[in-house]
Computed example of a mutant assay.
Amino acid sequence: MNHIYLDHAASTPVHPEVAEAMLAVMKGQVGNASSIHAFGREAKRTVNAARDTVALALGCGPDELIFTAGGTESDNLALFGVSSALKDQGRHIITTAIEHHAVMHSCERLEQQGFEVTYLPVDRYGQVHIEQLEQAIRPDTILISVMYGNNEIGTLQPIQALGELAREKGILFHVDAVQAFGAIPFAAKDLPVDLMSISSHKINGPQGVGALYVRRGTLIEPLLYGGNQERKRRAGTENLAGLAGFAKAAELASAEMEERTRRDEELRKALLDGLAREIGQDRFHVNGHPSEHLPHILNISFPEMGTETMLMNLDMEGIAVASGSACTSGSLEPSHVLEAMKLPEQFLRSAIRFSFGLGNTTEEITQVSQKVGTILTRVRNRR
């Protein structure tokens, strides 16, 4: 069976050059970056080089980057770190109703600790409106957290405008850019953003490595205590091979972004055109913003068939897709993102996320649209 992987929003395949960079470290280095002998100094150079490379790709200073174990830890560090540091100044946080669960569940935990959280609604395309943010701001608001590009529907948020408002009000602004980093061009230093989360395994790097950008002067308390790593902001021995791989992935993502965007948009169009040809435009619905979206994420509802049934049928055909966030796939509950968009029940319970990336071809996409057509025809004939 020919397997087709269309779940790059969950995790991407490791780029061959990334694997080579990691293997070179695993085979050639044994030191701890905190040790003062020659082996330790060599390890420290690996960490510093990785920090320089990732910072360059993100558009920030190396000293503004905290390495973490991935996007979830980065989100947690941003929310809990800022809340702890600023709790005497206020206990109100603003986020949106469509954030990743790393932010949503962190906010729920902060509510249990005595903080108040406002969850901004979104429109039918999944976008936040700045007027609603302005209305939600209070004198005791200390942090606003908004995802750059949604991991389920791909919709982009007006980060520039939201950040400018936050800065005008003197409120820290955190952006979960895990899906956006490497997919669309931006530089952290040019945005009105104080904290930004990114992850390696969304850009063809290894799993278990990420980073949090913290603008100079931003107050933040650590989550982990122990050694003095990461300027005492995140204790723990550095993952040398993981960081080397993250750096190489970030370097490649920056260099190849234009080509990647062109390819992903081509695959997106090919799938939409193929579905229109195979099943007809009236038998599927695209969820998310029609123009303000990440190029590699496409969320589609097939009202004739429930999400789980379509997932199972596609998997049997060797096609890997998702029902939404990788952290909640397998759950029979409807997506909180689609619910917040107030989609009709028929779209809510039949949504499939296709996400493109390294290795995908237009020939594969043609096969996928044909398979979807076959599956839906099979269901129709059973009725």
Rank of each mutant, 00 (worst) to 15 (best):
D63L: 11
E251G: 02
G81Q: 09
N76L: 12
P334H: 08
V103I: 13
E64W: 05
H174G: 11
E152Q: 12
G373W: 12
K202A: 13
G226W: 04
N76T: 11
N228F: 14
L332V: 14
K87H: 10
Q112Y: 11
M312F: 08
I144D: 00
V372P: 12
L343F: 03
G357S: 10
D282W: 03
S301G: 06
T237I: 10
R41Q: 14
P303V: 07
A19D: 13
L224D: 05
T328C: 07
K87Q: 15
I279D: 11
R231A: 15
H8K: 02
P139R: 05
K44W: 12
G182Q: 01
Y125A: 14
I220Y: 09
E339N: 08
T218P: 03
N150T: 09
N313P: 02
T307C: 07
I130T: 07
H92Q: 15
S331F: 00
A270N: 04
A183P: 00
P13T: 02
K189Y: 08
K87N: 15
Q112W: 06
N381S: 09
F115L: 01
G71T: 08
G126H: 12
I319P: 04
H100Y: 10
E345H: 14
A340K: 04
R262E: 14
I279C: 03
R353E: 04
G170R: 13
T362F: 03
F356M: 08
K232H: 09
P295S: 09
A21F: 07
F67K: 04
K189Q: 15
F115N: 00
V18C: 07
E116C: 04
P16G: 01
A85N: 11
R268Y: 09
I36V: 15
D140V: 02
V18E: 02
H129G: 10
I94R: 05
Y225M: 10
V175H: 05
E345N: 06
H129F: 05
S200G: 06
S291F: 11
I352D: 10
K202M: 12
D273C: 06
E134I: 04
F181P: 03
L252F: 13
L332G: 13
A270W: 00
D194V: 02
T366Y: 02
L110N: 02
V175K: 07
S200Y: 03
I184M: 05
D88K: 15
P16H: 05
E108H: 09
S254M: 08
Q112A: 15
E364G: 14
M305W: 00
Q179H: 15
S254C: 06
L358G: 09
L376E: 04
G274K: 11
K269I: 14
E108M: 11
L358P: 00
F246W: 02
A9D: 06
S11C: 13
T366W: 00
